[in-house]
Computed example of a mutant assay.
Amino acid sequence: MTRYPTNETSLTQETVPFPIVIHKSTMQQAVLPHHHQFYELSFYVEGSALDVVNGQLIRSSRGTVVCKLPHRIHETRIMEGRPYTKFSLMFDMDILLESGIEYALKRYFYNDPGSRHPAFIQLSDTESGLMERLFDELFDEYQSDRLFRQAYIRSKLVEILIGIARSQGGVRGLDARGVPVKPPVPVSTPNTAMQGNKITQVLQYINSHFLTDMSLGSLSEQFDASTPYLSKMIKKITGMTFTEYLHELRMEMACSLLISTRMSILDVSGESGYSSFKTFSRVFLRKKGMPPSKYRSKYADPGHDPGSVSS
């Protein structure tokens, strides 16, 4: 877990019974770069800001949904001192696996971290109104102690995720009805905010290349920093050693492949960045409390046909 400012230091089903948190806030200050182990959605209601997600700069305004996968460095910058109002919804994706019905949603949002799912989605005016209503209802229920509160919250989370998924045409310049919308503009300029912080650059690189062979030594040479310094700073910022952090990222990929494809467990091991199947099996058992085969049988959708992915 990052040592950058954050409150939800551990938001998983292993640490809390019902891992979901929602805030609604009006702010006029920046949010410093940080990352965490849970999924986060930000939905802008009013105002505007600049969001940086994994190095991509996004101009966020009303109707912008910013998607932040676990362990992806992100921050929020203010624009000309103007306030912005947004919902911040944080949750463990495994909350969707409890009923089994929502398995496909987890696969959709979380199957290929960093490449398949966009960092932001711009909703149309109509979609924004509907989404604001859903977030308001979820926020109201979250603050209550009503009967069947958890079931209601989960149902609203599913509605929100389905609404976002159905609006994916907005990323291509169209809303769900095919009507053109104006998306926020990612600024294709060098990531100057990251350039001033070498360790953030290193973490950014790890987040983007965790499936490749890497070591503290190779990172030390690439970023012209001593190995002890990198080791110390990675531990300070993430709360994990370099090796633990690398395993954390690779395990998320492995779990996604196990539940969403028919790939053999040996192939999942290789696709998750492990050259040694023995190491993969040992780390998986330690982190998930069960072998990969049991994880797959417990969480995989029996009706899912992965199609082009061979067994």
Rank of each mutant, 00 (worst) to 15 (best):
Y110K: 03
D267Q: 13
L89T: 00
R250I: 05
H247F: 15
L258D: 01
Y44Q: 11
G273Q: 01
C255D: 01
L246S: 04
I153N: 04
K68Y: 07
H304G: 05
T192P: 06
K68R: 13
Y245N: 06
Y152T: 08
F109N: 03
P5S: 08
A300S: 08
S275D: 02
P17F: 04
C255N: 07
L147Y: 04
G196C: 08
C255A: 12
R154Y: 08
P183M: 10
H304D: 02
H34G: 06
S276Y: 09
K182A: 12
L161W: 03
T12F: 09
A119T: 07
S311R: 12
Y205H: 12
V16W: 03
E271Y: 15
L138P: 05
S99P: 07
L96A: 04
V268A: 07
E8N: 05
K294D: 06
E244W: 11
I78C: 10
F43C: 07
Q56K: 12
R296P: 07
K106M: 12
L57N: 01
Y142K: 08
V185C: 09
L249T: 01
P17R: 02
S124C: 07
R77F: 15
S218F: 12
S220T: 00
V53Q: 00
T212N: 14
G169Q: 06
C255I: 02
G170Y: 09
M251N: 04
H247A: 15
N191V: 07
K182M: 08
T279F: 12
L89P: 05
D94R: 14
L123P: 10
E141Y: 15
M233K: 09
S269T: 01
